[in-house]
């Protein structure tokens, strides 16, 4: 029987020093592989996420952890676990008010104007990789709230897809606790949710009926080809798990899934740099999105 050697206790998360060069290498690795970027001043976030993994692996030095991410046989699995840590807590309703502002003030008026000309008063949204449903439920509430205002006379549908059956089941059930609802005000809670016991709320029938859930693998070319006529696609922190070739493929699909003038939203720290150059990156106040410029638009960009 091998002798158990007592390992020194891993340092608690907070004691990890962000300036350790190994963390900079991990930062660069995460950026290169996933497209998620941590600015200098946000490095401490990455450090604390790494620290959690280091505790789990009983590692003491960032250099050791870097080794696990780069040269060990299970490096892909470990990177995935780290990315899970990085994106954890990203999902609660109304997580990105700047995105909703951009929709309300710029994107929807733009699309309504362009589509109104043709008399097709219908909007299509797609949450690709909707996980447990916080995002499509947020979007549904937002659109319902605009129904009498901006969207008067218009209809919309929301497609929410994920690969994971458990996530989809949870999304369909629409039962959420305080964390998911932390930014949802009382008025919206009362209007769109009902009590589900155990301090939880469940999406009511009105809210649920706005969303169509489906299982779609973004790598499934055949299924991807069928999603046509989208106006806005949300795909937050999903592509970070894809290798470059698959990422490119999915982005190309999204591009053809979108109507000309449509928009793609990614996670707030996700970059498509060197992944795609067909979309145009557009800055809105406090957020960015990728734009499928209409073919008639001359080079020189949007105004």
């Amino acid at each position: 029987m091998p002798i158990e050697i007592a390992k020194p206790k891993p340092a608690p998360a907070l004691e990890q020093n962000s300036s350790d060069p190994a963390f900079l290498k991990i930062r660069d690795l995460v950026y290169r592989i996933s497209g998620i970027y941590h600015a200098e001043e946000k490095l401490y976030l990455l450090t604390s996420r790494c620290a959690r993994r280091m505790v789990a692996l009983e590692l003491t030095s960032p250099a050791e952890y870097l080794e696990h991410l780069t040269v060990r046989g299970n490096r892909d699995a470990e990177l995935r676990l780290l990315l899970n840590e990085i994106t954890i807590g990203e999902t609660y309703m109304f997580r990105h008010p700047a995105q909703l502002d951009a929709l309300r003030k710029v994107i929807l008026p733009e699309i309504l104007q362009a589509k109104g000309v043709h008399g097709l008063k219908r909007l299509r949204f797609w949450c690709a990789g909707c996980s447990t449903g916080e995002e499509p439920h947020t979007l549904a509430m937002f659109l319902l709230e605009e129904k009498e205002k901006l969207l008067a006379g218009w209809t919309f549908d929301i497609l929410a897809t994920d690969l994971n059956d458990n996530s989809l089941e949870a999304a369909r059930a629409g039962i959420y606790g305080e964390y998911a609802l932390r930014s949802t005000n009382d008025r919206l809670r009362a209007k769109y949710f009902k009590d589900a016991g155990d301090k939880k709320l469940q999406a009511n029938d009105l809210l649920k009926s706005q969303i169509r859930f489906d299982r779609i693998n973004l790598r499934d070319d055949n299924k991807m080809l069928f999603q046509k006529g989208m106006d806005v696609i949300f795909c937050c922190n999903v592509l970070i798990y894809f290798d470059l070739a698959s990422k490119r493929r999915v982005i190309q699909h999204f591009y053809s899934n979108l109507m000309p003038g449509g928009y793609l939203f990614l996670g707030h720290a996700e970059s498509l740099f060197q992944v795609d150059d067909t979309f145009r990156l557009v800055h809105f106040t406090g957020t960015t999105a990728y734009w499928k410029a209409p073919a008639t638009l001359p080079a020189g960009g949007k105004k």
Binding site: A102, K105, V106, E110, R280, L281, V282, H283, F284, T285, W291, A299, G300, G301, K302
Partner: peptide
């Protein structure tokens, strides 16, 4: 401000 800027363009 309401902004919509295509810096690259």
């Amino acid at each position: 401000e309401i902004m919509s800027v295509d810096l690259g363009g």
